[in-house]
């Protein structure tokens, strides 16, 4: 009594894709049919062999340029989605934001969320709501080109606020300091129309400002960023060996030297 099983049936059996009744029939037949066992084993073995043969490809490191490109696209996508819901923690999600400041050294790259509002403020970029974004190079991303923001970075004293020219964003200067390369940097906050706050650090690299750090936090208390978002900032400031904030006199002098 030979029950004929097609290759397809045996393959489905080997792959666990056969219905229980037919699978039971195959099993029973295998008990007394060595050739059938071998045919099933061939399907099991080819599967295992294929998996083994291609396993090394999985161990291969993904080229840096590819990872970087995908990370950048992910960052842009997240930025285009805009600020997080106020109910969510401010630091829940992170994306890489390569530092371009001088003296980068071997320092770990900073991982910070970028807000769409910040991108808009920096360069007039607005990523489409549908996520279809034009490619934005890193250089464009971090260079401050919005005239209102440039002016504010140059003139607003720490502790003062100003409505950015030609924008509905409020600029708040927090502190001015030098990093470990003696670069002049400013910590500031931007309140956007979506009632979120971007905490940011920009450093002056002739001829302009570059953003080296940015984190968006929902502003749930009158526009001031909650403490959780400033933890990332504090870690960043520590990493660049930020000098203590300048006094009013030092700041005035440092800023005037830029003109």
């Amino acid at each position: 009594m030979t029950t004929e099983f097609s290759d397809e049936i045996l393959m489905r059996f080997a792959d666990g894709e056969l219905d229980p009744d037919t699978a039971a029939q195959v099993e029973r037949a295998m008990e007394s049919d060595d050739e059938l066992v071998t045919r099933v084993a061939m399907f099991m073995e080819t599967r295992a062999a294929a998996k083994d043969a291609l396993a090394p490809l999985l161990e291969e490191p993904v080229p840096d340029h590819l990872t970087a490109a995908v990370e950048r696209m992910v960052a842009e996508k997240k930025a285009a989605e805009g600020p997080r819901e106020p109910s969510e923690p401010a630091d829940a999600s992170v994306v890489p934001f390569p530092r371009r400041a001088a003296n980068d050294g071997n320092r770990a790259r900073w991982i910070v969320p970028i807000a769409a509002s910040l991108l808009a403020a920096l360069g007039g970029y607005w990523l489409g709501a549908d996520g279809a974004s034009a490619p934005v190079g890193n250089t464009d991303l971090v260079a401050v080109s919005d005239p209102g923001l440039v002016e504010a970075l140059r003139t607003v004293a720490a502790g003062d606020e100003r409505q950015l020219a030609g924008s509905n964003q409020r600029f708040r200067a927090i502190a001015t300091f030098r990093d470990n390369a003696q670069t002049l940097c400013r910590e500031f906050e931007l309140d956007s129309a979506q009632s979120s706050t971007v905490i940011s650090v920009a450093c002056f690299a002739d001829p302009g400002w570059r953003v080296t750090f940015a984190v968006v936090a929902p502003a749930d208390s009158g526009g001031y960023a909650p403490a959780s978002s400033t933890e990332a900032l504090d870690a960043y400031l520590q990493a660049i060996d930020a000098a203590p904030p300048m006094t009013v006199e030092e700041e005035t002098q440092a800023l005037s030297s830029l003109r």
Binding site: V37, T38, M42, M44, T46, A50
Partner: peptide, 21 residues
């Protein structure tokens, strides 16, 4: 695909036979 692979790479099923048995 699997029959072709088996033929080309000399996979007979004998190696896994004993596991099944």
């Amino acid at each position: 695909a699997r029959k072709n692979l088996a033929d080309a790479a000399g996979i007979t099923g004998e190696n896994m036979r004993s596991d099944i048995v």
